[in-house]
Amino acid sequence: MRARAVIGSIVLVLSAALAACGEEQDTIKAGDLIQASADDQFKDGKEATVTLPTGRLLIHTAEPVDSATGDDTRTRQAVDAPSGAVLVPISWQYDPWDQGRLERIVDSSDTPIVDLVTDEERYRLPPPELGDEGGESFYVVVDGEAEDRSLEIEFDGVTQSVNLANGRTDAGDAAALYDIRDDALQKASCDDDERWFDSVTVSAEFTCDRFGPVLTPYAAGEWAPEGSLWLALTVQTEMRIYAEANLLGGGARFVATDVTVKPDIDGDEPTFVISADNDDDTCPSPLTTACGWSKTLIFEVPADDAEQGPLDLDVAYRMKVAIAWGGHIPPKRMKVEASEEIKLWDD
C-alpha cells in the first residue's frame, strides 16, 4: 500500500507539471521571443550584414514555421505558434570593431533599436549585446504568414533595413559605412622625410605618427550633415629630448613642459578633437619626462570631394633646461616651434 501511494504521488506531480506546460503554451502571443537551442541555429538560411558605427551585425534567417520541436528550443519543449500566427527564425551575431580601430572616432555608447516588421505589424526586439561576439538564435512569434518580413535597425536616428525573405540590405544614409576598409587606420609615420626641429646646432628626439584618415558618415557621436562626411584621423607626436650645441664644444639639453598643436586642413580647424586620455596625451610624462600629444581629429568635408588634405600641423613646445656643458649658458626657458604639411592620401 505504501509503495502504491508513492507511485500515485509521482503521477499526480507529473500531471500537474504537464498541465503547467500546457498553460504556458497557451500564453504564447505575437511579439514573444522563444530562445533556440543553438547560438547559430539558422546559419544555413538567408544571410545579411548590417554595418553600424560600432561594428557589424551578421544576420541569418530561415523561412517562418508553424512550430518548433523540443530539439530546436532552449527549454527542450516543443512550441506551436498560436492560431493565425507563425514563428520567424532569426540568428544574429554582433561583431564589434577591433579594439582601437574606430572606438575613439565613433565615440558613442548608443545601442541599435531593432524592429521586426511583418505584414505592416511591428515587433520590438531586444538589441544584440554590443561588445559581445557571441551569437544568438531565437524565434519571434508574429501574426499572419509573415510573407513580407524585414528588420529595421535604427542607430542614433538613422535606419537601415534588411529584407529577411531575400537578404537584401537598404543602408540608407549609413551607406558610406560600408566603404570603410578594415585597414583604414593603419599606422603611418609623418616625420620620415622631414627632421622637424633638427638643424646644424639642434638635435631633437621627436616623432610624429598618424592613424588614418578614414571617411565615415558617423563620428564623435554624430551623423555628418547632409551632403558631408567626416574625415577622421588620429595624430600622435612626442618630444623626448631637445638638445642644442654652440659649435664650440658646449651645449645644453632641454625637456618639454608643455605642448600646443594647431591642426588644420586648408585653413579649416577640426570640428571635433577627441583626446586619447592616456600616457600618449601627457606632457610631460611622469615616468619618462617625454612630452606626448595624441588627438583624434574630425573634419567635416564634402561627400563629393572628401579626400581633402594635406593636414597642416603647427607644433610649439615650452622647454626648460635640464643640463648644460662646455661653458654654454642657455636660457632657462624657451619656446621652440615647427610647422609641416602631412600628406593624407596616396596619389
Results as ranks from 00 to 15, higher is better:
residue 38 A to C: 08
residue 158 V to P: 13
residue 130 L to C: 07
residue 278 N to K: 04
residue 307 E to D: 11
residue 311 L to G: 09
residue 131 G to M: 12
residue 246 N to D: 05
residue 292 G to M: 14
residue 106 V to Y: 14
residue 94 Y to A: 07
residue 141 V to H: 06
residue 228 S to D: 05
residue 252 A to N: 00
residue 234 T to Y: 06
residue 159 T to M: 06
residue 314 D to I: 08
residue 344 L to D: 00
residue 143 D to T: 15
residue 171 A to W: 09
residue 51 T to M: 11
residue 171 A to E: 11
residue 186 Q to H: 15
residue 49 T to S: 12
residue 132 D to W: 11
residue 326 G to H: 02
residue 273 V to R: 00
residue 151 L to D: 12
residue 87 L to Y: 07
residue 332 K to L: 15
residue 164 L to Q: 05
residue 183 D to M: 02
residue 315 V to H: 06
residue 62 A to S: 15
residue 326 G to D: 06
residue 40 D to I: 11
residue 329 I to E: 13
residue 54 T to V: 09
residue 316 A to E: 14
residue 57 L to N: 07
residue 317 Y to N: 10
residue 145 E to T: 09
residue 190 C to V: 03
residue 235 V to R: 04
residue 225 P to T: 04
residue 41 Q to G: 11
residue 125 L to K: 13
residue 56 R to M: 07
residue 202 V to K: 08
residue 117 V to M: 07
residue 137 S to M: 15
residue 202 V to I: 07
residue 224 A to K: 00
residue 114 V to G: 04
residue 128 P to V: 09
residue 273 V to T: 02
residue 46 K to S: 12
residue 60 H to W: 14
residue 256 A to T: 03
residue 224 A to C: 03
residue 27 T to R: 08
residue 303 A to D: 03
residue 242 Y to R: 05
residue 237 T to Q: 10
residue 110 D to H: 07
residue 346 D to S: 08
residue 87 L to I: 03
residue 35 Q to G: 09
residue 207 T to M: 10
residue 216 T to Y: 01
residue 189 S to H: 10
residue 201 T to G: 01
residue 146 A to E: 11
residue 83 S to D: 15
residue 64 P to S: 05
residue 131 G to A: 12
residue 243 A to Q: 00
residue 279 D to R: 13
